[in-house]
Design a binder for these strands. Structure first.
Lengths: 198, 198
DNA sequence: ATTTTTATTGACTATTTAGTCGATTATGAC
DNA sequence: GTCATAATCGACTAAATAGTCAATAAAAAT
């Protein structure tokens, strides 16, 4: 029956995500994952080609979830400022709701691995993520605006959010992070608008 | 004689830094390091307790270098704005001049490893780095200002710079990164000043 | 030049880990 | 209930890696 297999697959993904977030992708072992998932070691290899494969699947999932946050608003933001603020809120909510996925996406190696053989497969979801931000913003801009400028903006949003939280996590309590984000958000939005000549 | 030992130690550190930046700390092996340094495997263990130990030493060095950039200015910045701009410039110069150290400091695992047994030893240089930024900024602020607010600012500076570059690196060419930083810098500085009620 | 001290070496052992595969168990159809 | 199929298991092999240590070489002291 497929139901059992589906459940097992889910358990494996959940366990892997937890271990990756806790110890980093590199340091995690297959046996840690299968033990945490409470399944035999061989089972993982029925569902995934190898550790790399499960990483890619999890990153794809995480990016899809994050994009879900980015796309969800009650009514479309009216102005660019509102959209930028929405984007920051979406990232923040994502990091709170899916801490493990946030930590997975943020692991430096995944972002910066410049000489990996799986570069392309892992690169794809990240570029899809940047592209999504660009699409959301483009709606508010003249079509003649330099695409490179929009790409920069997407990088800045992503970089600011990920970077800020990563450093906040070593120096702040969880509540402090939350209360820090709010005042920074508005001012950061203003910066971005200035950058776009808005 | 100590000179030979010192030279060997230097070679090992250089090799380790390169390998860590290229493949990540976790993925690097001791033999890769010693082979790149062109010394026997056992030699590494004469100089360092284990891989963890060499990581800590390298992170300490990198933080010291970065702090050097932060402290060096011809004449002390006159206003808070100038100091903040100096801080961003210092980070940028550091990332350009010492790309490998930048990549080492930025590896997610080092920033986010929440349940490591070497947490304290690795945490120390990072906190020292944040403290340095706080000291620089405090000069321009009333002593009654909330230290937490300053800590937030330090996190924001560090997070913005590291995060922005990390994302820029997967989506931009090196020249594009450089030209993107300039316009963002000024506006980011304004945000930070607003945040501090300046 | 000889001895002592210091530094280096790399073959070796022990350990860890990935990945395999035949045995075993659960599920659903009949 | 019996059989066929799908899913799971975990002991096993092969490979990679960490860390050791007796032998060797280089440097310094005498």
């Amino acid at each position: 029956m497929q139901k059992r297999a589906k459940r097992t697959r889910k358990k494996l993904k959940k366990a892997a995500l937890d271990v990756f977030a806790e110890k980093s992708v590199d340091a995690a072992t297959v046996e840690e994952i299968t033990e945490k998932a409470d399944v035999g070691k061989g089972t993982l290899y029925e569902h995934f080609a190898d550790k790399e494969d499960i990483v890619i699947k999890l990153v794809e999932d995480a990016v899809n979830h994050l994009i879900g946050y980015i796309r969800s608003y009650d009514s479309a933001p009216e102005m660019l400022e509102d959209m930028l603020e929405h984007l920051l809120n979406a990232h923040y909510s994502f990091s709170v709701d899916s801490r493990e996925e946030f930590l997975l996406l943020f692991q430096g190696k995944l972002l910066l691995r410049l000489e990996s053989d799986t570069f392309d497969e892992l690169e794809e979801p990240y570029l899809r993520y940047l592209g999504e931000i660009e699409d959301q913003i483009s709606t508010y801009l003249s079509p003649r605006i330099d695409p490179l400028k929009i790409r920069r903006l997407a990088c800045a949003v992503a970089g600011f959010v990920f970077g800020f939280f990563s450093f906040a996590m070593i120096g702040m309590s969880e509540e402090e992070v939350e209360s820090s984000v709010k005042p920074l958000r508005r001012t950061f939005v203003k910066s971005l608008c200035t950058f776009l000549g808005w």
